[in-house]
């Protein structure tokens, strides 16, 4: 389980994260929802230790983060654009002991990628798929995805959604941030809603449907008055 406990973060004069606490369990897909610019990415980067929180603490399975067990897929590629997919893989193989070339190959095949392509030449959708593949191939216990679907073509989206319901993602803890929920309405186990730097809702999606008959979008409408 990923536990985020009372974290706060200020960017220059803006208090981006007021006081955020929530959990994301292993084996479940948790979605961190919030309108644009409400600090979703900052929270993910904070969990990964890429951005220091001013206050608060993050525990993963009760311990400070172990980069072997958590993979982060930001919403943009983290490799220099002149790298080819092969070079990215070589880098991952060099520095990520748990990187599984076979898993990566399967993902490359599933996403129909061409290893010798340079990142520069790829479309946004393909790039997202490469990033995702590189992240998943680390065979992590927890996978953090920052807006995996934003601004990518429908077919890539479908391929990615399919991936989530496949065995590859089984019993991994997935934490996705997004502001468009309709792509993954049926994939999410738990939703955590963020508004003005605070967690306003944290609920099991199926329970809310069962008890209140409300979809995630409905709850969002109530919360954000979209």
């Amino acid at each position: 389980m990923i536990e985020v406990l009372g974290v706060k973060k200020r960017y220059r004069n803006k208090q981006v994260i007021e006081d955020v606490s929530f959990t994301a369990n292993k084996g479940e897909i948790t979605c961190l929802i919030g309108l644009n610019g409400t600090g979703k990415s900052t929270i993910l980067k904070g969990i990964m230790g890429l951005t220091p929180f001013d206050q608060g603490n993050v525990l993963i399975d009760g311990k400070p983060i172990d980069l072997n067990t958590v993979a982060f897929v930001p919403d943009h590629s983290t490799f220099p654009i002149h790298f080819s997919i092969e070079q990215c893989e070589a880098f991952m193989r060099d520095f990520y002991p748990k990187f599984d070339p076979k898993l990566f190959a399967r993902l490359v095949d599933e996403f129909k990628l061409f290893p010798e392509d340079k990142l520069r030449e790829l479309s946004k959708g393909t790039l997202a798929k490469v990033n995702l593949a590189l992240g998943i191939a680390q065979d992590p216990d927890y996978l953090l995805l920052d807006e995996p679907f934003s601004g990518i073509d429908v077919f890539s989206k479908e391929q990615i959604v399919e991936l989530f319901s496949s065995d590859i993602m089984e019993d991994r803890g997935v934490l996705i941030t997004t502001h468009e929920i309709d792509d993954i309405e049926y994939l999410v186990d738990k939703a955590v809603m963020l508004n003005r730097g605070r967690i306003v809702r944290e609920f099991d999606v199926e329970d809310v449907r069962f008890i209140h008959g409300k979809s995630i979008v409905d709850v969002m409408r109530e919360e954000y008055g979209a």
Partner: peptide
């Protein structure tokens, strides 16, 4: 369970439930 989840494109946990 796995086939169903992939085919219906829903969360495997939901199929399990």
């Amino acid at each position: 369970r796995r086939e169903l989840a992939t085919e219906l494109k829903i969360n495997p946990n939901t199929v399990q439930k």
